[in-house]
Design a protein around this nucleic acid. Structure first.
Lengths: 187, 187
DNA sequence: CTCGTATGAAACAACTTTGTCGCAAACTAG
DNA sequence: CTAGTTTGCGACAAAGTTGTTTCATACGAG
């Protein structure tokens, strides 16, 4: 077993980040295995996409977990919520780089199983933003869904700027934090 | 001529906004014409995508023009730059709704002609942001490219939230303006 | 070394998409 | 009404993708 299943998944993600519409043939070549072997690991293309989607969503769930947003939201302490928000941004930025293709991939939108899970995770994240609004950490004059989507948009910005080398990797977290919290106007 | 070329283009955009990976057959059905007629107007799929891409970019160029960012940038007057920025946001938000699919469409990235034009327009917009930084309107501790991509991300947020009915259309400009300029932290 | 497993290469059928063509029907200008 | 144009429909070939299968080979544990 020269190449493990984990390596296949990770290289497939890498290839899809570079060329989101890759065929199974292109994926196999990029991974470094034959198309037959790829089909031995993932019987259908949908199965592969499903696996990558779940992998991406599991990482998102882990990010929400690690940042401790549930506990912070429950407590309602502004300081703790602020800390959790900072932690959350760190986690999300790291994921945006790894699973960049999943952010704007259209094939996943048609797998109900994944859509459902996306909505569940979005709900959790938005619940945290709502708690942050109540605690006075985030402004309350915007719909929660908008705040969630704005964060999402910034993660796409991270992916694209990193892909083209426009920003330094070490700078990404600061840029998202500043853009998200303070905006771009000079004060 | 029951359906004009303009109508074909506009309905094709509408369909691609709903299903970005539509085939020529699906597009023809959604437009309300036969596949043969669609091919009579656009010999190849690439020709259609190229037309839609140029249409989208022409609108972007018009937005930059209408907002008067070039003149404002040249003058260097902070107040005028701020006004141009507000105007620009209005125009970009309107475009994001009309040409939403183009924001994250991958097929266009492989047409050099379009990529080139995207870079040119990005350059103009970023030149304006740079002028805004020098004038003290936008903060100067971020790369211009990041600011441009952050705006881009917010436009994707507009498209997605409008698509799902999460925000009111009348509210979109205010949300982008506030998110872009002031961020989401409560002060 | 040997046996069982994993792999690569190649071929195959089924399907989808794209682009073209011919023809009959509908429409329109005059 | 008539001639010219446009359209829809169906058929077609070419190409690409997907999924399966067969077979020979390479590898690894024992």
């Amino acid at each position: 077993m020269a190449i493990s299943r984990e390596q296949i998944i990770s290289r497939a993600i890498c290839q899809l980040n570079a060329a989101p519409a890759s065929s199974m043939s292109e994926l196999a070549t990029a991974i470094g295995i034959s198309r037959a072997t790829l089909h031995r690991h993932f019987a259908t293309r949908e199965e592969l996409i499903l696996t990558l989607g779940h992998r991406s969503l599991a990482n998102w769930a882990r990010a929400l977990q690690t940042a401790g947003i549930a506990e912070a939201a429950e407590g309602g302490d502004p300081e703790r919520i602020g800390a959790a928000l900072h932690h959350l941004i760190e986690e999300l930025v790291a994921d945006a780089e790894d699973y960049g293709f999943a952010l704007t991939d259209h094939q996943m939108e048609r797998i109900p199983e994944l859509v459902e899970r996306v909505e569940a995770l979005s709900g959790i994240e938005e619940g945290f933003y709502a708690a942050a609004q109540r605690a006075g950490v985030l402004r309350a004059d915007m719909p929660v869904r908008w705040i969630g989507c704005a964060m999402f948009g910034l993660l796409i910005a991270v992916r694209d700027t990193l892909r083209r080398g426009d920003i330094a990797r070490n700078d990404a977290v600061r840029l998202v934090r500043e853009s998200f919290l303070a905006g771009h106007a000079q004060r």
